[in-house]
Design a protein around this nucleic acid. Structure first.
Length: 208
DNA sequence: CACCAGGAATGTA
DNA sequence: TACATTCATGGT
């Protein structure tokens, strides 16, 4: 398999090696972090998660049963705390209602994706992050960095989520580990290089 | 000081 | 379908 999409992965991996995403200790924490990081810098999410842990609220069951005002107090550093507290509640309710990860994991990826998307507060990127990193489903996550990447490299003539996701999934082996590291590498590279200017001289994707 | 960060829901045309 | 607005804190 030799194509531009996979070649970019090789370049990124050569430069940055393993990222070991998702950075979390439990599956619950992955889901919680996926919601808290919506349009929010990760280091602020870490503060929010740290607060949740200190209050013993960093699990879906705890979020399900606890007072929403207590959740708000913990997650304020992550911003949008009013709606994110509701989103966390909605998501926790979903998992309590529909069962554990191992039970939900018996659904195929697309069925589970639709279920997750029915939660108010879970859009495509959040759903796919949960599918990939908490359920180990081979679903490629598309974020703002990914869109910027395909735009700068003229990889496709649209910026629609589905089209970009298909571009990656159709040009890669369907492997959750690969997808997970690739997405992490795109984020890593975006933070490291080329924040405003495309393709600076140190970017590992030059010439791909 | 302005601008952005690992988005999603809602409203408008 | 395709944009525009709103949500909010904290770093640069």
């Amino acid at each position: 398999m030799k194509n531009r999409i996979y070649e970019m992965y090789e370049r990124l991996f050569e430069r940055f090696s393993y990222q070991y995403w998702w950075p979390a200790q439990t599956k619950d924490e992955i889901v919680i972090g996926a919601i808290l990081t919506q349009n929010t810098a990760w280091h602020n999410v870490e503060k929010a998660i740290s607060n949740l842990k200190n209050s013993n609220l960093c699990s879906l069951s705890k979020i399900h049963t606890s007072n929403i005002e207590d959740i708000k107090d913990c997650i304020k550093p992550a911003g949008f705390f009013n709606q994110k507290a509701r989103y966390l509640k909605n998501t926790a309710d979903f998992f309590i209602k529909n069962g554990s990860f191992s039970k939900l994991n018996s659904y195929d990826a697309q069925t589970l994706r639709k279920m997750l998307l029915s939660i108010k507060g879970v859009g495509k990127e959040t759903a796919d992050s949960i599918l990939l990193y908490a359920f180990d489903k081979a679903i490629f996550v598309v974020d703002a960095y990914t869109k910027r990447l395909v735009k700068r490299h003229n990889l496709i003539d649209t910026l629609s989520y589905d089209a970009i996701q298909n571009l990656f999934m159709q040009n890669l082996i369907k492997d959750a580990k690969l997808f997970g590291e690739y997405h992490a590498l795109i984020v890593k590279n975006a933070k490291e290089f080329c924040k405003s200017k495309p393709l600076c001289e140190h970017c590992p994707l030059l010439g791909v």
